[in-house]
Amino acid sequence: MNSETLYTYIIKNFFKVVLIVFFITVILFSQGFSQEKEEQKKGPPPSLLSVELPKDAEEFFKEADKLLENDPVGAIRLYERGLILKPDAWDKRKKLASLYEKQNQLDLAIYEYEAINKATGSKESFFDLIRSMEKANLIIAAKDIAVNAFKKYPDEPAFLYLSGELFYKSGELNEALKTLQEFIRLKPADGKAFFLMGSIYEKLNKPKEALLAYLRAGELIKNDIGINDAIKRFQAKTFNIKDLSIFIPDGWIRDKDGLLSIEGSQRITFFVDPKGDPEKVAIKHAKDAMPYYGLFSDEALKAYEEFRKSSKKETPPLPIPFIRVKNMEGKNFAKIVTVSTGEIAHSNIESSVAISTPYKEKVYTIAWRANDTAEKGEKILTGLLEQAIWLP
């Protein structure tokens, strides 16, 4: 084959290849165009939720409501889309906030609750915002909102209770107590407020007030485990005699009909006598506690008084036995009787103190005895009575 023939052969075959490629291209284009037209006839593909995309906010909300129970994530997406179109749909925004909260997306929930509260300022919006913030452990912020809510709605004591509870959780115990006392003035039969006050008094180391609050809570809320446990815990720290409860002080233990100091040098005994003269009852129990009863007969006491007058200039002063009676400050009809072998401390000093007070047709007496000055016993007994609880 000469060169001219070879050239002619290549040209003919080149045109054949070009024609073949052209026809293949036309066929493929035609098929693609036909497929596109077919898809256009079918309409847009279905959404990820297998529903036709709504055309307005209400349609989004309607579809979201259907998914609330079984598909909360899908419902969230639809509520979000609907709220873009209608941002003032506050009832739907609350549903969205609630879903965020259930999904533990508390920052998003708070954002929505804040928007609702800012726009509506309703009681309900305050409650929702306070609760969600407390759940997110934003205690101080929640407390401030609760305080402002009560200022706006003074007819809603629940905001006052929430304020007190949040003051307590934030460690502001005195402010919490003040707030709850105001709440109880408005709602005197609210047992949970008394229980919370008991917890506050307990933290403030005020056992008397704490137990009284717990007892009142127990009267208002029957058979509550938390309240009953608190009462039992405190009663374990008291010595009870009839209608009187005495808190056992540190360093003392129960012993038969009274208390004994741990080191064993002091003893406190409790008595309940029929109705009578508190002064006479106190003198009797104070004398009975002393080991040398004869030292305090009427004749002996007169002799001591004469000797005291004649020895005033003695240096150092001499220990002279005595009995003294006085009223207990702040306690109507209560009498304090002190008996001692000397007004000053000495090696053989013996003292007793008895405080008697009438209550419910009886006379209750607390008597102390030790090898120490009477002043010490008087201080101990008055402290016990100041913290004592008289049961109704």
Rank of each mutant, 00 (worst) to 15 (best):
N371C: 01
R324W: 07
D229R: 14
K37T: 06
L259C: 09
T365E: 00
A142D: 12
P319Y: 05
A345R: 02
L166V: 06
Y9L: 08
G43E: 09
E59K: 11
Y364Q: 04
I140F: 12
L260T: 07
Y364H: 13
Y304E: 14
V337D: 11
F150P: 00
Y364F: 15
R233N: 13
A109K: 00
A97M: 00
L204H: 06
A109F: 03
A64N: 06
S125D: 05
E63P: 02
P278R: 01
R369F: 00
A367M: 06
K275R: 00
P154W: 11
D128W: 08
Y100M: 02
L85T: 07
E314Y: 00
L211H: 11
T238H: 01
D229F: 13
K206D: 11
D91V: 10
I145Q: 10
K237Q: 14
D88M: 11
K331Y: 14
P72C: 02
L78H: 02
A236E: 14
Y153L: 03
L381F: 05
I323Y: 01
S34H: 09
G251Q: 09
P46R: 06
A354V: 03
S347M: 13
W252F: 15
L6C: 08
L204C: 04
K309S: 10
I389K: 05
T179Y: 00
E378N: 12
A57H: 06
G218S: 15
K203L: 04
K42Y: 08
D190P: 11
